[in-house]
Each structure stands twice: as structure tokens, then as C-alpha cells.
Amino acid sequence: MRADALERGGGTPAPELRDEAADLHRSLGRFLQLADAHLVRRGEAAGTQDLPLGTDWHWRPLIVRGRIRPGAAVAPQNGQHLGDEVALYHDCPHQALILRQVPNRRAADLAPYALTLEMMGFSGSYLSLALALPADLNPDLGRHHVIRLDATLHSERSIVVYGRLNIAQGPNTETILRQLGHPIDGRECRRTVEFDLGFAELSQRPVDKVWLDLIFEAPRMNAVTVTEAMLSRHPRAEM
């Protein structure tokens, strides 16, 4: 059944046909995201020359590599996703937030896209962006590793941002919290933070899931843009 037939009131589509169309829509959306990312693959190596010796894994989120559709979430619910990798968590009763992907246009930008979070009259007690890390990081991840975040951010007003790495093993989740240096103070700020897993209480069982939270302190009437984000892994120094 064609869409124009539905517009003319031409009957009700079968449930299985609607489900098939929904699956196709999701598949096409994912294809377009990956196709955009493929077009900028030549930029994947940008910035990797500064990674520590022994780095065996590095990754940029799709939201800075390729176009996300839809590209914005206005008045998002708690836990709402933008793309497959990013979710926004908050308790603002008025949902006075806008999360959107924007293009990077400067020649010096390493990533083709950026992520902007606008906070208008925020009245909640917490606000964080959760970034799901890919499963190919998990199989041999252990206490002998350091996970590193290299990010470039700027804000309209000074704001403190924390990074919290979360590692789930069965029913247990180990977390490591680090502040991203000095407050982001209205200028473009490059930040590097390392999460040393040697201090984490990890067991011998496989890692099920890893994600990174960016936590914003006192986010009222502000806007933060992440113009670059890259995560990498290298071995920790042996004592």
C-alpha cells in the first residue's frame, strides 16, 4: 500500500506491513548515518598522532563523524536518545533543554559534526549525556588498561564538566569519576582525562557494557558544544 493511497483514505494497512516499513525506516536511517561517516573516513586518523605509545584502540562517536537523523531533540524526556550512541538524562520538570547536532565549519576542526546542549532555565538537580562505547572494546578490557578521553568543548558561560566511566560486569557496575580540568569558561577548551582501570574493582568475568557520562554542574542558562571527542585505550604503566 502506497503512502498517497493512505492520504486519500484508501483503507488501513496491515500491521505486519507497518512493522516492515518501520524496520526499513530504521535500516535506511542507519545506512545514511554510516554512509556519511564513510565519506569522512579520511579524517579518522586526525589527532591520533598525539595518542600515548601503545594505544591499541581509538574511536570517535558517530555523532561527531556522521549526520544523525533526526538531528535534534527539543524538550527531551529523561533518557531520550539522539542517534544510537547518545542519551540525555535529567530531572528538569519543564524539560527546558535542546540537544542537537550541528556541523563544524572551521578548517581546524578534526570532526565534521558537533553536539550542542542548550539549557534554558534548568531547574533540575542533575544533567548528563551518556555515550555508549562500542562492544569491540569489551572482550579483553581489564585492570591493565587506561581509557583516555580527548575532547574539545566550549560554553557560553563558565561550567564544570565531569567525565564518569562506567563498566558493567553482570549485576555490578564500577565507576571512575574525573573532572575535565578547569571549568569550561566560554572559550574553546581542549581537555584530556584518563581513567586508570587499575583502581577499579573489576572481576575476572567478561565486561558486558561500557559507557561514559558527561555530567554538567549547575547548568542553568548555558549552552555547551562538544566539537570533538575521541576515546582511546593504552596499557597502564607497570609499577
Rank of each mutant, 00 (worst) to 15 (best):
E188V: 15
A22V: 14
R26Q: 14
R143F: 03
P134L: 07
D109V: 04
F31G: 06
R2G: 00
H182M: 03
R8C: 09
Q80P: 02
G71A: 14
P61C: 10
H145I: 07
E7L: 09
G142N: 13
P103Q: 07
G54N: 01
L131Q: 01
F122N: 05
H94G: 05
P219M: 06
D196M: 12
P13M: 08
A22M: 09
D196V: 08
C189V: 08
E156A: 05
N104G: 10
R178G: 04
A237P: 06
D136E: 03
Q169N: 09
D150K: 02
G71I: 06
A35P: 02
L117A: 02
Y162T: 01
T55C: 11
I184E: 03
R69S: 11
L53W: 05
A237T: 09
V161D: 03
N166D: 08
H25E: 14
L129A: 02
V86H: 10
A46F: 00
G79W: 01
R67G: 05
Y126H: 08
H90E: 09
D4S: 15
R60F: 14
L141D: 10
S125E: 12
I63T: 14
T116Q: 15
P183C: 00
T55N: 07
S158R: 13
T48K: 01
C189W: 02
I68V: 15
F216W: 00
P13Y: 04
I63Y: 14
P13N: 11
F195K: 05
G181P: 00
